[in-house]
Each structure stands twice: as structure tokens, then as C-alpha cells.
Design a protein around this nucleic acid. Sequence first.
DNA 1: CCTGAAATCCGAACGTT
DNA 2: AACGTTCGGATTTCAGG
Lengths: 143, 143
Amino acid sequence: MDDIDRRIVRALSEDARQSYSEVGALVALSAPAVKRRVDRLRATGVIKGFTAIVDPAALGWTTESFVELFCTGRTTPAQLAEAVRRHPEVVEAYTVSGEADALVHIRAADIAHLEQVLERLRGEPFVTSSRSMIVLTRLVDSV
Amino acid sequence: MDDIDRRIVRALSEDARQSYSEVGALVALSAPAVKRRVDRLRATGVIKGFTAIVDPAALGWTTESFVELFCTGRTTPAQLAEAVRRHPEVVEAYTVSGEADALVHIRAADIAHLEQVLERLRGEPFVTSSRSMIVLTRLVDSV
DNA sequence: CCTGAAATCCGAACGTT
DNA sequence: AACGTTCGGATTTCAGG
């Protein structure tokens, strides 16, 4: 993991469908050399995969919210992970320090759908209460 | 935007570096037909780009937090967007309904770095106060 | 890490339904 | 309007140095 690797990662983050020779031109390496590095970066888990950036609105999942979950005393991260993964509307989830125990990012078709997801989440045995914020506008998104 | 388009989007979301003929095999189309559809999906903005999924820990940006911002009465989303975009550590930002006015996702090298970002954010003229949650573990991430 | 060759893939043009 | 086929040129991939 040297400086060339970091530049390769940056190049592929900007356009994952660039050819190896194009990346090679940016980092002053031949295409085969770039491929070997990318293969190694994937094998070591630095690069976990390549994906398309899709406009969620185009798919009709246009209502987003962040939900803070408050849980019972002994709830493990593993339990939480297992539970939230069952809900396909959950696109991100974290355990956090602060008032809440977990923060969950939800993407749903509309408010009715969102409400339904919230009810499912609040039905989880370890959830004692929740507080939600509905996303009004997306200001930045460079995850 | 028909069912074939949706399947192409799904295929490229799972592996953005697949060849057009591989995608074609999945959706029963020839490679040029797939390319034409992908070109159209990009032109219409359904697909905004392709990116590598990078393990942030591998890059050393290992401290994450979500910060709720409370702002002065007349703060426009445009103002907020302009301001948060100036901070490279901000990877997501939204205006939200609920107690806070905005929710900002920050990725920093360590706690010291995070504190520094927080101070910069709280120095913005329209920010009256903030409340932060530090991410402990990442449960789900399929943005 | 580079060079080179074979297989594959891309992109554009053309013809078809 | 959208798909399939075809063809020249580029790219990937696997040798060997």
C-alpha cells in the first residue's frame, strides 16, 4: 500500500470503468502492472468491489430518513446488525456514542412506506424508542 | 426505463467492471444493445457514474461521526450546501426535519482531526449549536 | 516492472424486424 | 425505435525476460 496504490484507488473511485491502460497513464505504469496492483488491492480488501452510482429518485425510492434507535441495556452490535440487515430499506446503519445507541439510514418509496419500515424497526424486541429525521434535501453525497 | 434497464442497473451495481457481454448474458441482450442502454441510462442521469468501494479503514480515515447542526432562522439549503462542501471530511449532508436543521456525516483520520472539523463547522456563521454522535461500528453499508 | 502475442472486448456502421 | 451482426482497433491477459 504505497502512494501509487492510493492514486490507483482514487482514479478508480472517480471512474470504476476506466481501462487499466488509462489508469496506467495517470500513475505512470503499464496496464499489466496496474491490473496486478488492483488484483492485490481487491485480495487484501482495500477495494471491496465496484459499483454503479444510481440516482435513487430514478428508482422511485425518494423518501429518506435517519432514525436514531434507543435500545435495551444489553443489545450487542451483532444483534443489531443481524436485525437491521433484514430490512432492505436500510442503506446504512451504525452503532454510535451519544444519546442514541444506533443510527440507521432508510430509503423508502414514500412516507407510507417509511412509516411501515419504522413500525417494523420499532417492533424489534430490543428497540425501546426511536427518533427520526426526514431528509429534506441532499446537500452532499460523496460516500 | 423498463424491466431490462432495472436488471442492467442491478448487475452493474453488483460489479461495475463487468463487460457488456457479461451483462448481456444476464439480461438476454447482445453487448451493443447493453451498451446503448447504459449510455442512455448515463445520459438521463439514472446512472451517475461508477466507483470503487473502498475500505475507509485502509486509507486511514477511521473515525466517523454524524453531526446534527442547529442553524439560525433564515439559513437556506443553498447556503448550507455551499458551506459543508468546503470541508473535505464531509461525505454526506442533508437538511432534515426534526429537532436539528441539518445532518452531516464526517470521516476523519482520528479524534483530534474530527474535533478540528467540528470546530470549523461550528465556526460557520449560521451554526448556532451542534450535537454529535461518534460511530462505533458500521453495521450495514450499502449506499 | 516491462515487452510482446493471442484472445477478448469495445465502439461504430449497417441491415433487419 | 430497438435489436442483432459484423468489422477494425483497442484492451485485457498470460507468457517470458
